[in-house]
Simulated assay, not measured.
Amino acid sequence: MRRRNTPAKEAVLEVLKKAGKALNHETVQDNLNIDIDRATVYRVLNRFCDDGILHRVVAEDGKQYFAVCSKCDSEKHSDNHFHFRCTGCNTLECLPTPVQFTVPEGYFAESINCIINGRCKNCA
């Protein structure tokens, strides 16, 4: 089903594309160039996740972060990749290359939500 494009959707997507990293709801709201209420921003973020435009990352503090899917398409969308949270500048981003991991014999991974904490290349 094709969804209608709105100024709210355009503004939210522009903020996330310009950031180039995962942002939480509050940061998205603070960087909007138009006035959109909090509930609409949440609705737009969740709809973009449903449509495979964004993916959601739940950090260890329970906050949800949203990032533009750069290597996904609507048929092969996957949130199953590693993210990196810098303890210096507090940014959260998708790692650009895959991180390999294995699970013990007899276990089968269906999805992952992994955040590696440390210092990014700018803060190291």
Results as ranks from 00 to 15, higher is better:
31 N>M: 06
103 V>L: 05
52 G>P: 08
17 K>D: 09
71 K>W: 11
26 E>G: 11
87 T>C: 01
14 E>Q: 08
122 N>W: 01
4 R>S: 13
1 M>W: 00
77 H>K: 14
21 K>H: 13
102 T>Y: 14
43 R>H: 07
81 H>W: 06
19 A>W: 00
109 A>W: 02
57 V>N: 00
75 E>Q: 11
29 Q>A: 09
85 R>H: 02
92 L>K: 00
40 T>F: 01
49 C>A: 14
16 L>M: 09
69 C>G: 11
120 C>N: 05
83 H>D: 09
43 R>A: 12
92 L>H: 10
19 A>S: 07
39 A>W: 03
27 T>A: 14
98 P>I: 05
3 R>S: 07
48 F>L: 15
30 D>A: 10
58 V>K: 09
88 G>R: 00
98 P>Y: 02
10 E>R: 10
112 I>V: 09
23 L>G: 08
26 E>F: 10
118 G>D: 02
38 R>E: 13
54 L>Y: 03
119 R>V: 07
63 K>I: 10
98 P>W: 01
90 N>I: 01
40 T>D: 06
24 N>I: 03
50 D>K: 15
74 S>R: 14
95 L>Q: 04
115 I>Q: 06
118 G>C: 08
92 L>V: 10
71 K>E: 14
3 R>V: 11
122 N>P: 03
47 R>E: 14
110 E>N: 11
94 C>E: 12
113 N>D: 12
1 M>Y: 01
